[in-house]
Design a protein around this nucleic acid. Structure first.
Length: 319
DNA sequence: AAAGCGTGGAC
DNA sequence: TGTCCAAGCTT
């Protein structure tokens, strides 16, 4: 496999050993240089985000992580602030109705996340004394918390050492280490192995490294139009050294949205969100003409617990 | 394990 | 314009 190589340093002919043979860990000094390179870049370029401040509680970090699942930072910022103002602790949210969480979620998208965040708050309140657990396995057991989110909360909020593998990190490793433009569609064991190899040994350093690599992917090593000229890994990057070969493979996505059940669900739920209280069927009929698809979408929302039928032809957000 | 799940912005 | 993408999770 390729690797992040040492930069061709004309100034200091590095005494560091060349890239290690497959299977062997590279020299600590070399790793240390790589870590310093990325950490220095992060120190100078990190965005000033509210969930990264010292005063951000583990709950605040968890809220941010839920909201950031597939939603851009810019749209999360105001929702994050409003959410924490209303529900500063898990117990505050748990004491409120799940429908209120769905309403506060607004237009962030994927509203099931709101429901799961509420359910997580209930679990934290009932099973963890109202404190966000600092144990990775306990985090993973919470609703809406997967491998990434568990690692992110444990790392960012509790400064533990975990492989934090999100879309940004995967892309950075795909390019810098593997030498391809994009990672595979699904996360592979090889990717976890690679990320683990490069993870600093010290928890505190590992935690900062995790967020730093993510930030690099978000700001420089972007999916489209990466700014390689501004990248601290420019000289080491396997993709760069290979001449930045374009992605080869199957189309990575291609989801149409217009006319889908997803769009129908969104329209219906928007009506429920904006109407405080019960909503008659007629109000829903207005926003989606196709009766068959409308019924299917509404059934789906009910099945997901996002909508509650209160009577024949009357609906509301769940209580 | 591939598909379903929202929404808005960038190019 | 349509396509792609955004700190994924669940079934």
């Amino acid at each position: 496999m390729a690797a992040i190589t040492s930069p061709p340093s004309p100034a200091t002919p590095s005494p560091a050993a060349p890239p290690a043979a497959p299977g062997a860990a590279p020299p600590t000094t070399w790793h240390g240089e790589l870590h310093a390179t990325v950490l220095d870049w992060y120190g100078a370029n990190a965005r000033d985000l509210p969930w990264r401040t010292a005063s951000a509680s583990p709950w605040a970090v968890m809220v941010s992580e839920f909201m950031l699942q597939q939603t851009p930072v810019k749209r999360v910022l105001p929702a994050y602030a409003a959410w924490l103002e209303r529900w500063p602790t898990p117990a505050d949210l748990a004491a409120d109705a799940p429908g209120e969480a769905v309403r506060m979620w607004g237009r962030l998208g994927y509203p099931r996340r709101a429901l799961r965040l509420h359910a997580a708050a209930v679990a934290i309140t009932e099973q963890h004394g109202g404190r966000v657990p600092d144990d990775h396995a306990a985090l993973l057991a919470l609703p809406g918390v997967g491998e990434y989110t568990a690692a992110a909360v444990a790392s960012f909020a509790f400064r533990q050492r975990h492989v934090v593998l999100d879309t940004n990190v995967r892309r950075v490793f795909a390019r810098a280490v593997t030498g391809v433009e994009y990672p595979a569609q699904a996360t592979t064991a090889a990717e976890r192995r690679t990320a683990a190899e490069y993870l600093p040994a010290t928890p505190e350093t590992a935690a900062t490294w995790a967020v730093a690599v993510m930030e690099l992917g978000a700001l420089v090593c972007t999916a489209r139009g990466p700014e390689c000229g501004a990248c601290p890994l420019f000289d080491r990057c396997a993709w760069q050294r290979a001449g930045r070969p374009p992605y080869e493979g199957p189309a990575r996505r291609g989801q149409t949205y217009e006319g889908t059940d997803r769009q129908a669900r969104g329209r219906l739920l928007a009506v429920l969100r904006d109407a405080h209280g019960e909503v008659p069927q007629a109000r829903l009929d207005e926003v989606w003409p196709d009766a068959v698809q409308r019924a299917r979408a509404l059934d789906g929302l009910v099945a997901d617990g996002l909508v509650e039928p209160v009577a024949q032809g009357v609906y509301r957000l769940p209580r």
